[in-house]
Design a binder for these strands. Structure first.
Lengths: 204, 204
DNA sequence: CTGATGAGTAATCAATTGATTACTACATTC
DNA sequence: GAATGTAGTAATCAATTGATTACTCATCAG
């Protein structure tokens, strides 16, 4: 996606770099994602990536905050649409669907997962914990789930996240893999898989 | 833990390097974990680390295989101890406890999680999927769980894994964090937390 | 003793990486 | 039309990293 445009406003360029960084950090993790790969993905020079965000660390922080922010927004949007007539089970389905749509962007999915693996980092750790808890508070206080319901919802979400990160749908021919995917993700698997196929992967 | 011993047999040294690599790869991921950090952790030279395993990639592969292998062994040991009188719920508790004991080693926990985030890697991806499915098959075929029970068991396990990776117990004073931890991990949280405290973290 | 084998390292290399600097080109404003 | 700000890059740097090579030192069989 090295969109070879001309000059952009710094805000537009910023968005573009964040999108590119989400892809690269997703595929290679924080340590493995280079500013050079991000620059190439965005079609600009490596120097400009660093200059616009100050450092790779600050860039990743913004990428992570953007991902968790989008998650919060997606959940709040669904909750705002609650009529009050749904059962909590129906609400779980609606929220789960929203999560599925969000992480249909593989970069976002993987960035979230990589962030979770950075719990011991002095900078990203606190950020990761706080974001995770924020989402839990939304599900608990704003969606009105009980602790048990919320935990169950999160557990299923984490399993789905890992199954997608693993690219488990790639071995869907295996009967046990198919069973696990169906049992955990239901029909959502198809939609998300299709979306993954559509996403360009980084060159070697 | 730079245990400054003298010469060891190559097998003993191998074990020691694998243990050191588990710690380092756990804390910094595959890309971020350097052979130099592993060597220092093991108290030997960087050259010897590379030489013994051929490459960093092969070393990580062995570390990952060791972690997933231990998981399979732990589950099989528990299953072998089943009397046939337990309910499936009791069996879930027993297996969950075994998982908790395994990932009380933080290096193992994080190595597993990092492996899951490598699903698109041409080398580690297939390995990760196959290992994950192997464990699922054990739970499904050898422990005799239904697809729904197994999925639920895995979902809970993945949530616990991420909560521990996030170091969520560090913010246990937060009422919602405490609630989530209690609801997902129960009293196991205490044991594992204590074990984490006891583990030396890498120097800067 | 001697010679071979295995454990382990120091030194070094080429490649990569995040960051900095000095610069260019295009706008906008006065 | 000069001046100023803003988007963007080329060139370069110091540090790091995985890997290789040539070596040292200990041990042990004969």
């Amino acid at each position: 996606m090295s969109t070879a445009e001309g000059r952009l406003t710094s805000d537009d360029r910023r968005e573009q770099i964040l999108a590119a960084a989400t892809v690269v950090f997703g595929e290679r993790g924080y340590a493995g994602g280079t500013t050079d790969a991000i620059a190439r993905q965005a079609g600009i020079s490596q120097a400009y990536v660093v200059r616009m965000f100050g450092s790779k660390e600050k860039l990743f922080l913004e990428v992570a905050q953007r991902a968790t922010g989008r998650l919060r927004a997606a959940f709040r949007e669904i909750i705002a649409g609650f009529t009050g007539a749904e059962s909590n089970l129906e609400r779980q389905v609606l929220l789960g669907r929203a999560y599925g749509e969000l992480v249909a962007d593989r970069g976002t999915l993987l960035t979230l997962l990589h962030l979770f693996g950075l719990g011991q980092d002095p900078v990203f750790g606190p950020e990761a914990r706080e974001s995770f808890l924020d989402v839990y508070r939304i599900i608990r206080d704003e969606a009105g789930f009980s602790a048990e319901e919320a935990t169950q919802f999160f557990a299923r979400g984490m399993l789905n996240t890992i199954l997608l990160a693993l690219r488990m749908p790639d071995v869907k021919d295996d009967p046990r893999a198919f069973e696990l995917l169906s049992s955990s993700m239901g029909e959502q698997c198809e939609t998300i898989l299709a979306s993954f196929e559509a996403q360009a992967s980084l060159g070697a």
